[in-house]
Design a protein around this nucleic acid. Structure first.
Length: 269
DNA sequence: CGCCAGGACGCCC
DNA sequence: GGGCGTCATGGC
């Protein structure tokens, strides 16, 4: 990744990055594509830091109204710019299917999101579709001045008081996750450092967090790249292309591989 | 109307 | 320990 300061903006050059593929692939739900003259532009936020970012052309990006210190201090980490995805994809390409998936959607990066926001987001995601997930999270943040509520704030709510979300049966899961996080019964910072099997067990003490949601929180919210969420699409990939098991060499970054495969199989079905 | 959506729970055997 | 109905909501 290279960058230059240009007035109030930062210009970023990174070939292993595509805005649509990264921000609209189902790993984050609070980015909105807005119409501009650029290839594409997204507005969104990480914690309470808002950002407008455009793709000027393939591999080149404009971070609007961003200081160099904010860029280096926040967005480099969020977009995982210090990880060499070329090297990752080179290693993945030893496998034929993964090689095709990397060529198909090679601009996906694994965002380093906030674990708490991820936990609530993926609880909402269960048995749901992406547009509706976004709508529910939008109503949730809209209720708190556009910012994502804290565990303490949400712990005061009940399934009834959350009815404005229209999140259905998931409301009681949101309340349980919030109470357990606010009370310290669930400590996301500690869970992030645990051996992964212990982390899975700890996350699943929350009602409404099963294998899939726990894996998503580990991968997207704690950057545990060995976490491997399996949904119906990935199950299909495993049955069709990996009857003998997922290749050992790719497992330490299985979650990133999973992102490429997920996008690949969905777009080609 | 039925079906499905990046699932989890409760109950059954 | 696997199989299956149920859980809200909304788009198609």
């Amino acid at each position: 990744m290279d960058y230059t300061v240009n007035g109030n903006n930062i210009i970023v050059s990174e070939k292993d990055f595509d805005l649509d593929e990264t921000l609209d692939c189902g790993q984050a739900f609070r980015w909105k594509r807005i119409p501009t003259d650029y290839d594409c532009t997204y507005e969104g936020s990480f914690l309470n830091d808002r950002l407008t970012v455009s793709q000027i052309k393939k591999g080149e990006f404009l971070f609007h109204n961003t200081t160099e210190s904010d860029f280096l201090g926040k967005w480099v980490d969020y977009f995982d710019f210090e990880t060499d995805y070329s090297e990752l994809k080179r290693r993945f390409s030893e496998d034929e299917t993964l090689s095709k998936a990397c060529q198909f959607a090679g601009g996906i990066r694994l965002l380093r999101q906030n674990s708490w926001e991820c936990l609530i987001s993926f609880i909402i995601s269960q048995n749901n579709n992406i547009p509706r997930i976004k709508g529910i999270i939008d109503r949730l943040c809209g209720h708190y001045n556009g910012e994502f509520p804290t565990p303490q704030q949400l712990a005061q709510e009940t399934a009834d008081s959350l009815s404005y979300l229209r999140s259905g049966f998931r409301a009681k899961y949101i309340v349980d996750a919030s109470c357990k996080t606010a009370s310290g019964a669930v400590d996301l910072k500690k869970i992030a450092e645990m051996p992964i099997e212990d982390a899975r067990i700890a996350l699943r003490t929350i009602t409404g967090v099963g294998p899939k949601v726990a894996e998503c929180v580990l991968l997207f919210g704690m950057h545990r790249t060995e976490a491997f969420p399996v949904d119906v699409w990935i199950k299909r990939v495993l049955e069709e292309y990996y009857p003998g098991g997922f290749p050992e060499f790719a497992r330490e970054n299985g979650g990133i591989a999973q992102q490429y495969l997920f996008h690949y199989i969905r777009s080609n079905s």
